[in-house]
């Protein structure tokens, strides 16, 4: 994480910042992710794997939404894949190595200033996990109804992604939840540890598809 990232929000009365100060031990979660310890290059997102409709005909794009993605595509070119453009909703997919840089560009140039939700979805058929950030804007009135979905993919056997906490401070708890529920390790996140699950949870992350509810 670069020095310019404003991780803490400024301390009140000079007291230490609460949540980011304690960098706890790395996880003991029982998936295969933490064992190798190396950051593997994530696989190229394949185009025919998603359960998502791919619509990219230029003629159908609503005008306003097209303007938002045009500035991104002109800067980053082929690394951005447009999954769909609907009224008020845009979804783009980017490689995980570029996600921090593109997210910063989205924040500074396009005006999306906070993340509403971060969800990770497990796709065992294609062997990867999709992490999607739903970004919204409070500062710009013309963007208030818009949600930009920024998604990326990672290998589900070694799920590691760079954290966006340096760009969007609001992803902190959402990424922590994705770590314990789906087992995606976020590099540079101050705390990849238990949040909602019990402290003695000794099973695989529950939102992985292999995890079955008993009796179902």
């Amino acid at each position: 994480m670069s020095k310019s990232d404003d991780l803490s929000l400024g301390n009140i009365k000079g007291k230490p910042s609460p949540t980011v100060a304690s960098n706890k031990a790395l996880p003991s979660i029982s998936t295969k992710q933490g064992e190798t310890g190396s950051v593997a290059a994530p696989p190229k997102p394949s185009s025919n794997n998603t359960s998502v409709q791919v619509k990219s005909e230029e003629a159908e794009l609503p005008q306003f939404e097209k303007g938002i993605i045009d500035s991104l595509v002109s800067k980053y070119g082929d690394s951005i894949k447009i999954i769909y453009v609907k009224p008020d909703r845009i979804k783009i997919e980017v490689p995980s190595k570029d996600i921090v840089e593109i997210a910063r560009h989205i924040r500074d140039e396009s005006g999306f200033d906070h993340a509403e939700s971060v969800s990770a979805t497990d796709y065992p058929k294609t062997g990867d996990i999709e992490v999607i950030y739903h970004l919204g804007s409070y500062t710009r009135d013309d963007l208030s109804s818009h949600i930009l979905s920024l998604s990326t993919r990672t290998d589900r056997n070694n799920a590691r992604l760079p954290s966006l906490i340096g760009v969007f401070r609001s992803v902190e708890y959402h990424e922590r939840e994705s770590f314990e529920m789906v087992g995606v390790y976020f590099d540079n996140h101050p705390r990849n540890d238990r949040f909602l699950l019990p402290e003695d949870w000794a099973d695989i992350p529950p939102l992985r598809k292999e995890f079955r509810i008993k009796g179902r």
Binding site: E116, T121, D122, R169, S170, E172, Y173, H174
Partner: peptide, 24 residues
């Protein structure tokens, strides 16, 4: 549904709790 994610206001506002309490 293949995946459902519920993004709730309480979970988002929780981030403000440590921010506000420290120093109070």
């Amino acid at each position: 549904p293949y995946r459902v994610k519920i993004s709730v206001g309480s979970f988002r506002n929780l981030l403000a709790l440590p921010h506000l309490l420290v120093g109070s």
